[in-house]
Design a protein around this nucleic acid. Structure first.
Lengths: 230, 230
DNA sequence: CACAGTATTAATGTATACAACCTGTCTACG
DNA sequence: CGTAGACAGGTTGTATACATTAATACTGTG
């Protein structure tokens, strides 16, 4: 039987290599969607993907299922899943929900953040301002993620942080368009982050909440402007 | 655990018309968790469950994965998943997030609800009051679900409704303890629903929002009281 | 030429086989 | 007696085989 060869081939990796094939499939498909290699509406055949990735259908299928639940791909029941298309309205819907959640998230975080976390945030803010000055969008975006991660960690209501992250993921491929294509917004956005940080540093929950409200309002405005340009 | 009935093995159901085996596994496991047949901390072996349900491992595994993502079961990576245990703090966390989302949900719903939906709500409110009068908790809970469903449908921000539902699901097995074990709360809660409905009927978004805020505040208080009794 | 019905293909849903791994037990040896 | 190492059972991760359905292409007939 040829089964031996199959299982000895390098396809069958050790489990101890900490990433499972499902996770690998998940990451790669997700990245492909984010980078628009897989475009909205495109059908994602399990068979095709599994061949493409060199992973069997089972893990690929599970990865797809996870993406369905996160809303990055859609599924007419029993049919092939497709990359979800995001309307501007979808993005606005997400931002609206964020406007309800994130101010409170920041308030709670500010009221129970640790000293070391504040120091971490301080370092990040400096990098953020540096990146903004250099118009280094890639660096800015990367550091920005860390910024929000730390705030999330500082929030005692873990589910709240988790919920916000899920919401953001849902529109990640388009959400950063705001800062990414608008240099002025990048500068302003950085200042807004600074304001949020200052309030957190002072452990002033209400002030932090207000700063975040301002930030999201600005974000919303920026998005709405883009719409009116169409 | 043994309460789960063995599935009569018709090998292959039709795909389009009937539920898939994954959905069946999902529903039955979920129900078992909600009814505490599967208790928090209990390990859910894929193999064992598949034998119990008479469904092969693949669909069972997929159902479990979905439950993981919904937070009803937990998974130490690479190990057997267990039924998630819910602390009171978890419930409070959920209620806190709901207090941020649901008032806005109701406001939006009230401002764009249709006439027929209002009529549906009106019928539901009457049933709710009837059930409260008779102390028929089962009926009350069932109708309550419909109440919130219709409001959800009336809200133009679909993602908001979806998010709230997800949050509620997460603590469903314990959330209703509030009204279910406290007759006074049942009556008060019904009145709160009536207030919300009246505001919706008048299409007064702000009033509806306030009524919902009051409702959730009462819910929170009731929960906090239960804690202090410990 | 239009079209209906069929055959072919490819997709998903499900079952099962197998390897790696983890855990606890039991034995053998110090 | 205590501990290390083999072993057994059970668990997950992955690959693959099979059944069924949906879609498409094709062919024969009006």
């Amino acid at each position: 039987m040829d089964n031996l060869e199959i299982y000895l081939s390098k396809q069958h990796k050790k489990r101890g290599s900490n990433r499972t094939r499902r996770e690998e499939a998940y990451d790669r498909i997700k990245d492909a969607i984010r980078h628009a290699e897989l475009k909205p509406g495109e059908p994602l055949s399990e068979t095709r993907l599994s061949k493409l990735l060199g992973i069997s259908r089972t893990p690929v299928r599970e990865a797809l299922q996870q993406l369905v639940q996160e809303g990055l791909v859609e599924t007419a029941p029993g049919q092939t899943v497709t990359v979800a298309s995001r309307s501007i309205q979808d993005v606005l819907d997400v931002v609206h929900i964020r406007s309800l959640l994130e101010p409170e998230l920041v308030r709670l975080a500010a009221e129970s953040i640790s000293k070391t976390q504040i120091e971490q945030l301080e370092a990040i803010i400096l990098k953020l301002e540096e990146a903004a000055k250099n118009h280094d969008l890639a660096a800015w975006a990367k550091v920005d993620v860390r910024f929000h991660e730390i705030i999330k960690e500082a929030c005692p209501n873990k589910l709240l942080g988790q919920t916000v992250v899920q919401l953001k993921n849902r529109v990640h491929q388009v959400a950063n368009i705001d800062t990414h294509t608008n240099p002025e917004r990048l500068v302003a956005c950085t200042q807004e982050h600074r304001d949020i940080f200052n309030a957190i540093k002072a452990r002033d929950g209400n002030k932090a909440r207000q700063a975040m409200e301002t930030h999201i309002a600005a974000l919303t405005n920026s998005l709405l402007k883009r719409i009116s340009y169409r």
